[in-house]
Design a protein around this nucleic acid. Structure first.
Lengths: 113, 113
DNA sequence: CTTTTATATGCCTTGACACGTATATGCTCG
DNA sequence: CGAGCATATACGTGTCAAGGCATATAAAAG
């Protein structure tokens, strides 16, 4: 379990991350909101913490977990190389659709005239 | 192997995707550029195609594979929810650093005067 | 001090998947 | 049509991680 991609491959871990984006939570809150056994939550949090996705502070017997941005930014950085590609594609599609609309409009004009 | 996240968890598959971002390639080209056994390449391409990451066309005995944007955009969409979070954090950090700089400047001023 | 609450860890089983090797399919060209 | 190249698939194997359950640690409450 090394790469950030393997970490977020697990659906429950993604759910935890999504939950933490709004605010920090205790293990028990996560457990209840995601309806998942407590040991499972703790284990996933362990993985997430080791990978730097979250950090925790102690509040009496509770541990409050909150998000850290770096690993997800790493994913974002990897994704960046593809944004150029697909925006180019969207542009091409838009040009294509423009031509379609153009041609349809012409046809309609002819018909309705 | 259902979710797009599991697909890109595999390093060789990410390498293939990165390779295809510049242009389409045949299986043999991928095999040589990534120094990976041909069956491995074919298998990963199969997975990528089934998941909609790539598509292929036939060119004689070759198959040319090229990228499709949708699945990676799905990843991008999931990531979007965190961007607000971390840009907020960066803002806070910047404000913090500004204050530091401010205070340091003041101190320096005093010293150098 | 005992009980209860909150969280973490250990062990075991199971299933998925990546890899290697061998082989099959299919196209091209002599 | 047969040889050779390009790609796909099948099978056997090892690894690793997720889930379930029991239990350990530790703090709070009574």
């Amino acid at each position: 379990m090394q790469s950030v991609f393997e970490i977020i491959a697990e659906p429950n871990r993604r759910a935890i991350l999504s939950l933490l984006v709004s605010s920090q939570r205790s293990v028990g809150e996560i457990e209840r909101q995601l309806r998942m056994p407590q040991p499972a939550v703790s284990k996933h949090l362990r993985v997430l913490r080791d990978a730097g996705f979250v950090e925790s502070t102690v509040d009496a017997q509770r541990r409050l977990y909150r998000l850290k941005p770096e690993p997800l930014q790493e994913v974002d950085a990897w994704l960046a190389q593809f944004r150029r590609f697909w925006s180019a594609r969207v542009d091409a599609l838009e040009r294509h659709l423009d031509r379609m609309a153009q041609s349809t409009a012409t046809k309609t004009k002819r018909k309705t005239k």
